[in-house]
Measured scan of single mutants.
Amino acid sequence: SHCAGCKEEIKHGQSLLALDKQWHVSCFKCQTCSVILTGEYISKDGVPYCESDYHAQF
């Protein structure tokens, strides 16, 4: 499978399933500020955001 963030193949190591896609753990980050999302996040149109950036933009 391929990472939804960087589009590279996910080989051995940690990956996560979010928004119905596979991601490298380090690629699942806020679209705006690039903080790596480990806990709470909000998505809009399949794109992840941290809570503060989501509320600031939408």
Rank of each mutant, 00 (worst) to 15 (best):
E40V: 10
D45Q: 08
S34Y: 10
V35Y: 03
Y54E: 08
Y49Q: 04
Q22A: 13
C6V: 00
S52E: 13
K7Q: 10
I42F: 12
V47L: 11
L19F: 14
S26D: 14
S26P: 14
C27H: 04
C3D: 00
E40K: 08
S15F: 04
L17R: 07
A56H: 10
I42C: 15
I42V: 12
Y41V: 05
K44S: 11
L16G: 09
C33V: 00
V47Q: 11
C3A: 00
A4E: 02
V25E: 15
H12M: 12
A56F: 15
C3P: 00
Q14N: 07
L16F: 13
T38N: 07
H55F: 12
D53C: 06
D53T: 04
G5Q: 06
I10E: 02
S34P: 01
A18C: 10
F58N: 06
F28D: 02
Y49C: 04
I10D: 04
D20S: 10
V47Y: 12
T38M: 05
S15N: 15
K7V: 06
G39Q: 13
E51M: 12
Q31T: 08
G46M: 05
G46A: 08
S1Y: 08
E9P: 12
L16D: 06
L16V: 12
C33M: 01
C6G: 01
C30G: 01
D20G: 13
W23M: 02
Q31S: 06
C27I: 00
E9Q: 08
S26G: 13
C50G: 01
L19T: 07
K7P: 07
D53G: 04
Q22T: 14
E40L: 04
F28W: 08
S43I: 08
G5Y: 14
E9N: 11
C30D: 00
Y49L: 07
C27R: 02
Y41F: 04
K7A: 13
W23N: 04
E40S: 07
K29D: 02
F58R: 07
P48F: 05
E51S: 08
Q22N: 09
S34W: 04
S15T: 11
S34C: 14
D45C: 07
W23T: 02
Q14M: 05
Q14W: 00
S1H: 06
P48T: 03
I10M: 13
G13F: 07
S43Q: 11
G39R: 09
S15L: 08
H24F: 00
V47E: 06
C50F: 02
Y54D: 08
H12V: 10
C33S: 02
Q57S: 15
F58H: 12
S52L: 07
G13H: 10
L37F: 01
I36D: 11
W23R: 03
C30P: 01
C30F: 01
S26C: 13
Y49D: 02
C3N: 01
G39P: 05
C50R: 00
K7N: 11
Q22D: 12
Y54A: 09
S34D: 09
G46W: 01
S43D: 12
I10P: 04
E9S: 11
